[in-house]
């Protein structure tokens, strides 16, 4: 009996100690996405003092005059036009059961691109727009689309187009799982991998505006705002999934499956730190 009391008081004392020690330790280690995003955006603004925040959504075209001119010429009749038309047509065409994409999304899917990805508290995971589109298809008895092919690019192109100019508005709810997903995405972004031993940040944080071989690297800030993109290098459209997998391949790493937890978390992180920058997709890139 006495020993039990003794034990209990020791436990109490420990708890008291912990509560005293905890706050400063927590302050240093606790993830703080809002502070991250501020620091992230400040880094790019300091690096490119001539650019306005919204210019970053135009990627490498904002960083080089000769390229900017080629881009302006391209945008007179942009190469993603056919994909956009295809997406619009697909979006408005009902499924076999009579329902349509509009039934799966808030505001019938119009002008909502800036809210994706979001953290789904029922699933406990991040849900991207590409994932939500395929879930919509499957829920309505349709086969899912490939995440890296034209159909998915066309659908997301249309949804981005209806959201142009709306600032990214990614929310991290007060849920430790959401914060963990954000942290996982951040870790993925800064971790070196592949035979070239590059992280995403090696190119898109440390060296935007520099040439890697022939190409001018895009800044990570605003990089997803322009998705999906028509890349001249691909001779066609690509989704966020395609961008992530090719990035891994280009650094001679092993790409993950599209919409794997890691990529979903990465998209969550990368979108969140671009909060406030306008959606500009679909885009055109070299």
């Amino acid at each position: 009996m006495r020993s039990a009391i003794h034990f209990a008081s020791a436990a109490l004392a420990l708890a008291a100690l912990a509560s005293v020690a905890a706050p400063p330790a927590l302050a240093a280690d606790t993830p703080n996405p809002a502070a991250d995003a501020r620091a992230f955006q400040k880094y790019f603004i300091d690096k490119f003092p001539k650019l306005k925040l919204a210019d970053f959504v135009n990627g490498p075209y904002s960083l080089n005059e000769d390229m900017h001119k080629q881009w302006e010429e391209k945008e007179q009749f942009p190469p993603y036009e056919f994909s956009l038309d295809m997406g619009k047509e697909m979006f408005s065409k009902p499924f076999k059961n009579g329902k349509s994409y509009a039934d799966c999304f808030p505001n019938k899917g119009i002008g909502i691109r800036q809210d994706y990805p979001y953290f789904d508290d029922k699933e406990g995971k991040v849900v991207t727009l590409e994932l939500a589109l395929n879930r919509c298809r499957v829920a309505n008895g349709e086969a899912p689309f490939s995440y890296v092919k034209d159909e998915m690019a066309a659908l997301t192109a249309y949804m981005a187009f209806t959201s142009r100019g709306k600032p990214f508005d990614i929310k991290i709810p007060n849920d430790p799982r959401a914060l963990e997903a954000y942290e996982n995405g951040k870790r993925y972004f800064y971790t070196r991998r592949g035979q070239l031993n590059f992280s995403c940040a090696s190119c898109h944080v440390q060296n935007p505006g520099e040439r890697i071989r022939a190409e001018i690297l895009a800044p990570a800030l605003g990089i997803l705002n322009a998705m999906p993109i028509y890349r001249s290098e691909w001779g066609g459209m690509g989704t966020i999934s395609r961008r992530f997998t090719t990035c891994n391949v280009q650094t001679r790493g092993v790409p993950l499956d599209p919409q794997s937890d890691e990529y979903r978390d990465l998209e969550y992180y990368l979108s969140y730190v671009s909060n406030g920058l306008p959606i500009s997709g679909p885009g055109a890139r070299p």
Binding site: G59, P60, L196, C203, R211, I212, R213, A214, E215, I216, L217, A218, R231, E233, Q250, T251, R285, P286
Partner: peptide, 8 residues
Amino acid sequence: VTVGGCGG
């Protein structure tokens, strides 16, 4: 004309 490698 420079042929693309990695990046963009």
